[in-house]
Design a protein around this nucleic acid. Structure first.
Length: 211
DNA sequence: GGCCAGGACACCA
DNA sequence: TGGTGTCATGGC
């Protein structure tokens, strides 16, 4: 069975750097992480576009929007009522720290993940995504694609997020960039492997898949 | 026209 | 702790 380092190396050698997160600013990453929850990226990106057209993704401006207006702007991402609330609770939290991410890291230290989980609408996966892509931390992110891939690789206890996370230890050598790249590679691999009907050359893991 | 996508949460036992 | 229903749009 492939260990994390080998899996990482094989993915990287076949796919190259993924340059995640696909966004220009940290606020855009945060909004994207919320809007893509259980939604395909196309719909989430469309919501970001309309939000950007109306607010330039200025968090202060977004917080001043009527909730109905915010809901309308992000409608294409689905679950728009819940996501509007999540955006407000998260941006309000950031605002309390003047949108200073270093200040937040210094304030919470090791308890950052716990603080993120206390935000309404931020669950384990989104918390880990924010830690890796916004706060430069190191976390394994066993999202649905990752769990499906690990299942095929023969790992056990892959059926839910917490179970797989508790059983996987990232290598000591892993940096923030490695955690970033590994998650991006796994998701982009999963996206092609599980969704595309025609063969696009993503068969390089097949020899490691069981059955 | 059904199925599902880069989840979270309330509720229940 | 773990399983289930609900929230919702747009593309295929």
């Amino acid at each position: 069975m492939l260990d994390i380092n080998s899996l990482y190396r094989i993915l990287f050698q076949n796919m190259g750097p993924q340059k995640w997160w696909p966004a220009d600013t940290k606020i855009e990453i945060i909004l994207g992480a919320i809007l893509v929850q259980n939604t395909n990226w196309r719909n989430a990106a469309s919501a970001i576009d309309s939000l950007s057209n109306h607010t330039h993704l200025d968090p202060q401006y977004i917080l001043k929007l009527d909730i109905e207006n915010l809901q309308y702007l992000i409608k294409s991402s689905g679950f728009y009522k819940t996501k509007a609330q999540t955006i407000i609770s998260t941006l309000s939290w950031l605002e309390a720290f003047d949108f200073d991410y270093e200040k937040i890291k210094n304030y919470y230290g090791k308890h950052l993940r716990k603080a993120l989980l206390e935000l309404k609408g931020i669950g384990e996966e989104t918390a880990d995504v924010l830690i890796v892509y916004v706060f430069d931390g190191i976390e394994f992110i066993p999202d649905s694609y990752t769990r499906r891939i690990f299942t095929k690789l023969g790992y056990v206890d892959t059926d839910n997020y917490r179970k797989l996370k508790s059983n996987i230890e990232l290598p000591e050598s892993f940096t923030n960039q490695d955690a970033n790249e590994l998650h991006a590679l796994l998701d982009n691999f999963g996206k092609v492997y599980f969704n595309s009907k025609n063969d696009r050359g993503y068969q390089f893991l097949d020899e490691y898949f069981v059955k």
